[in-house]
Design a protein around this nucleic acid. Structure first.
Ligand code: ZN
Ligand code: ZN
Ligand code: ZN
Ligand code: ZN
Lengths: 259, 259
DNA sequence: AGGAGTTCAAGAAGTTCA
DNA sequence: TGAACTTCTTGAACTCCT
């Protein structure tokens, strides 16, 4: 940087070139004079001041200047006084409102995670060959499935969870619901193995380009859902029954005693 | 950085020395010539002078030189005269203000303690107050829950999944079962928000230290699971019924027509 | 391309303890 | 006292959505 300025001063002063100079001017951090990397929270700043501003505002800590509250902020001094650095950030117009809220950040992270999962493109199975009746039944089942378990599976989000923790003896740790954590873990594994399956299995052939009718797409998709629906139904029914059976109250009243 | 470049330009041009020398130069304690470990209170110093400066300033003791107030400070002599060592520290620019105030240190300690607590203990809800019968029922429910939904939720891993894909028109991508992906997505959200809830809610008080009996731990844990179990049971039963109702075959046979 | 957030190794405070 | 260690802070480089 030093060299660059000197060069400019020696060779460029008479010509009064504009673009270069303006660029250099515009590319200076309004907070600390370091090299700026663009507009951050509404002001041209460097990466350092960008990160500092976000952290300072989000942490919500009230800094206090150990000097006279009038520190000059430069590339080299900016680290010495957080209070004055933040003050300067605000003075030149950096906008708190442009920092994403925790909620917004959470949504963003979720979106990215979802997109990543979706990008892992699986292949498509063979086209099944069904009778009219079978196709109708298939439609019925899929429709029932859709009605019962909405696409975003919102039921799960509404589950309240318990807090399961271990004693201090067992490692000085308390834990969130083991159950929920375990289920996340397992669902993750499930999805990953499913990915592997659909991506590597020789049974899963790439979708034939020649098949392009809307109806064929739909049929294939529906058909592939059948095993899943069957598993889910089995699980739901058996789970309900088993749970009830395991409660002494129900056992004693022999409502379910047919074994 | 600027200073470094200038130094290089002035002294290094003739010798053509390399990085080694600069590094060594920069890594010398400006107070005592010992090996420096970085910038401390604004000046490149060794660990010894760093610690000495903090202690000397914080203790607020007025040292006095037993000699002529002009001791030469070196790695070996630095311990002989605290007065001249401190004087030298200040002369070369070590900054008192960069020593954290007692208040700041206290806040820092508190913060660290809090962080540690949060890390280890997501915090625990209030202890419920139950009758013997209620405790028994609680045990029954928990036991039933454990028997029905094993901890690792292995049922879910065994679900087969359908393949749902979009047309090439919609982005040249094929997709795995929307259902499974969505459920992962949603379970993730659920868990994350649960974390936030237990970490930030004022309703969740730190676990009282005085409660240390095994029984109390167990009771609290069990109690906290109740809402979750209730949700799960409701979901399972309603899900089964709704699914069946949504299938024309069952509807037509009016087995479930009691609405 | 622009500008949000994210990552993580390096830096610099304090803390420990022989 | 000071070597070794812990913890939080920085900011360059990077990812991701628009
Ligand atoms: Zn800056
Ligand atoms: Zn200041
Ligand atoms: Zn020293
Ligand atoms: Zn002296």
């Amino acid at each position: 940087m030093v060299i660059k300025y000197m060069t400019l001063g020696m060779s460029g002063s008479t010509t009064g070139t504009c673009l270069e100079e303006d660029d250099v001017d515009l590319k200076i951090c309004r907070v600390c004079m370091d090299k700026a990397t663009g507009y951050h929270f509404n002001v041209m700043t460097c990466e350092g001041c960008k990160g500092f501003f976000r952290r300072a505002v989000k942490s919500n800590i009230r800094y206090s200047c150990p000097f006279q509250n009038s520190c000059v902020i430069t590339k080299n001094s900016r680290r010495q006084c957080q209070a004055c650095r933040l003050k300067r950030c605000l003075e030149i117009g950096m906008n708190k409102e442009m920092i994403m809220s925790d909620k917004a950040v959470e949504e963003r992270r979720t979106l990215i995670k979802k997109n990543k999962t979706l990008k892992m493109t699986p292949s498509i199975p063979e086209e099944p060959d069904l009778t009219k009746e079978q196709e109708k039944l298939l439609e019925d089942l899929l429709e029932a499935h859709r009605k019962t378990f909405d696409a975003s599976f919102t039921h799960f989000t509404q589950f309240r969870v318990g807090i399961v923790y271990q004693t201090l003896r067992q490692g000085s740790l308390h834990f969130l619901s083991q159950y929920v954590v375990a289920s996340l873990y397992t669902v993750c594994i499930s999805i990953q193995s499913t990915h592997q399956y659909t991506q590597s299995s020789t049974l899963m052939k790439p979708y034939p380009v020649k098949i392009s009718l809307e109806k064929d797409y739909k049929l294939q998709r529906n058909f592939s859902m059948l095993p899943h629906i069957a598993d889910l139904a089995t699980y739901m029914i058996q789970g309900t029954i088993n749970f009830a059976k395991a409660i002494p109250f129900f056992r004693n009243n022999s409502l379910l005693s047919c074994k």
